[in-house]
Amino acid sequence: MATRTSTQNVTTTVAQNAGQTRPTSLVVERTGPLALVEDAGRFGCRHLGVTQGGALDWISLGWANWLLGNAPDAAGIEIAIGGLALKAEQTIRLAIAGADLGATRDGEPLDANVSFTLEQGQVLAFDQPRAGLRAYLALPGGIDAEPFMGSLSTVAREQLGGLDGRGGGLQIGDRLSAAGHAAEIRDMPSVPPMPRDEAVLELVTGAQIAHFEGASLFAAFNQAWQVDSRADRMGVRLTGPELRCQLGGMISEGIPLGAVQVPPDGQPIILLNDRQTIGGYPRLGALSPIACAQLGQCAPGTTIRLSPVTPHQARTRYLRQLALWR
């Protein structure tokens, strides 16, 4: 995994305009397949059956926020596949990061990872994926809406979060208000590209790995997997060699983010942010948080290779990523 450096960042502090109190906002003019308010997720409530939610590619949400000087976990918009168009009601500073969805400002192409000003009346539009699947849009200070259990994250299945508080995606006519003002204007450092045809995902191996047959384990980490079309915010199916495990159905237990569970058909399902909180299939382990973010950008058909890592290795990389935003 390539490391990111922040040494070449150019940071400019924007003079805060004390007189500017009117919230700046965007109006949804066109929707695509799915555009959701997401932050880092909802925590401290999984024992009540409430899932974590949050941006699938939390790294790209973090960068979009960083470009405006926001906290990395401030709420933004997760734009899956494209299609969304937003018009500025007032001039507003915005940032996008993550997938290249062919974003334009009044028809002029924008970079995939950039901070920019949308003048009053201008339209920010997303077309379709050129690299990656999900782009993240940050507003100054985040998005102004009522959090539920500490988070704005939208979970459709639970009817929780989002602008309406009921788990709905963005609709035509919705108004997105910034929660604050841009603290800074920054340029994007160089970051690893979006996965295109192939991705190597780090998997923290779990204790249940001992129950898988040796040949299955060899296959799991040495053969290629394909991202199936059955993929959403709950989980992503992989197709490839059939994995065999001596554990049958288990008593349901808590499921961590990125859990690679193997149902009886031997084809893994990687459980992501909107997963159910408990489940009863054996697991190879769990993808690292960085690998979960990468998987959120992998289109169906992408070739996946799983690379085993220890919790310590995964943690070191995770903390290094967080340190880039300090």
């Binding site: 204790a207 237990e253 961590p256 382990g285 769990a286 948080p289 919790p311």
Partner: peptide, 10 residues
């Protein structure tokens, strides 16, 4: 006590 992920133990 079982390792289940980077930041989770069962």
């Amino acid at each position: 006590l079982e390792t289940v992920g980077m930041d989770a133990l069962m």
